[in-house]
């Protein structure tokens, strides 16, 4: 029961981060390997605001989201759009965007380490609270609830608004979307920026209960990638379920065997997906 509740709460926060990456890869077709660093930047902002003026991370989040949206928009227009234009094949775009976002990720790590080279430790809502007979930290619960709220809003926006429908259309077929008069370049930039904002917000939330440092981004990138592939590229519903599966498995492994093995367990899941369902849990074959 302990494992179930903690796993669900962790999975809820992972889901938000993976949704961010999925928007960037599924719609803008950019495999953003600096995703984890975006997350850590969100965490760093929360840490700095909390230690300097004891601002609640939930308030910082409101500043982080628009800032990250703007920064990711600019990054897409200036750095990634030229690669999309230059690419002669999807394969070449993949290689170029992987290398470029590696570059961005290392540059960000370098900057973050020079801003604050140690752990981002602060204590926010670190009070025990009891739900269904299990004791959890209040900050985990708050983070998971906020993540669920944002996730629900995002799914609603994608399904029930005009722009959201355009975003989904681009994710399904770029050329067809262009034919029906959707500005694919604009929608891609929008999806990329939105994905970045969602990821950074996730980072702010995660920083309330996990102690991060500047170089930990790659682990989160890895987990988000595994979730996106498990859930199916472009499939937000799949991402949510996959994130919860990963959250549960990691919590189970960490509490039953050894906390050092969480990445190993993520890899075992990944390997299983690659061998048996490379198209994702709910994907169609050859899709």
């Amino acid at each position: 029961m302990d494992i179930l509740i903690s796993g669900l709460l962790l999975g809820g926060t992972y889901a938000l981060v993976a949704m961010g990456l999925n928007l960037q890869y599924g719609v803008a077709r950019i495999m953003n390997l600096a995703n984890g660093e975006t997350l850590v930047l969100g965490a760093l902002a929360a840490f700095l605001a909390f230690t300097a003026i004891s601002l609640s991370p939930l308030v910082t989040m409101l500043v982080v989201a628009p800032l990250s949206f703007a920064a990711n928009w600019v990054a897409y227009r200036l750095l990634l759009r030229p690669l999309v234009k230059r690419a002669k094949s999807p394969g070449q775009l993949e290689v170029d965007s992987i290398l470029a976002t590696f570059g961005i990720s290392f540059a960000l790590v370098g900057l973050m380490v020079s801003i604050h080279g140690e752990y981002y430790t602060y204590s926010f809502l670190a009070r025990p609270i009891e739900i269904l007979g299990t004791t959890v930290a209040e900050n985990r619960l708050v983070a998971a609830l906020v993540a669920a709220g944002i996730g629900a809003a995002l799914v609603g926006w994608l399904n029930f608004t005009r722009t959201g429908t355009a975003v989904r259309a681009v994710s399904v077929d770029r050329q067809a979307a262009q034919l029906v008069g959707i500005n694919v370049a604009r929608v891609s930039a929008l999806a990329f920026a939105l994905g970045g904002a969602v990821t950074a917000t996730g980072g702010t939330l995660i920083s309330t209960f996990i102690t991060l440092d500047g170089s930990m981004g790659v682990i989160f990138t890895m987990k988000a990638l595994i979730i996106v592939i498990m859930g199916g590229v472009g499939d937000l519903r799949g991402s949510i379920i996959a994130a919860i599966v990963l959250g549960l498995v990691e919590t189970a492994v960490a509490s039953l065997i050894d906390p050092g093995l969480t990445l190993v367990s993520a890899y075992v899941i990944f390997l299983g997906i690659l061998l048996f369902r490379p198209q994702g849990l709910f994907g169609k074959r050859n899709a």
Binding site: L99, F102, G103, S105, F106, L108, V109, G110, V113, S215
Partner: peptide
Amino acid sequence: TLYLGLCF
């Protein structure tokens, strides 16, 4: 690390 990033 910054150097690595800029090289990429």
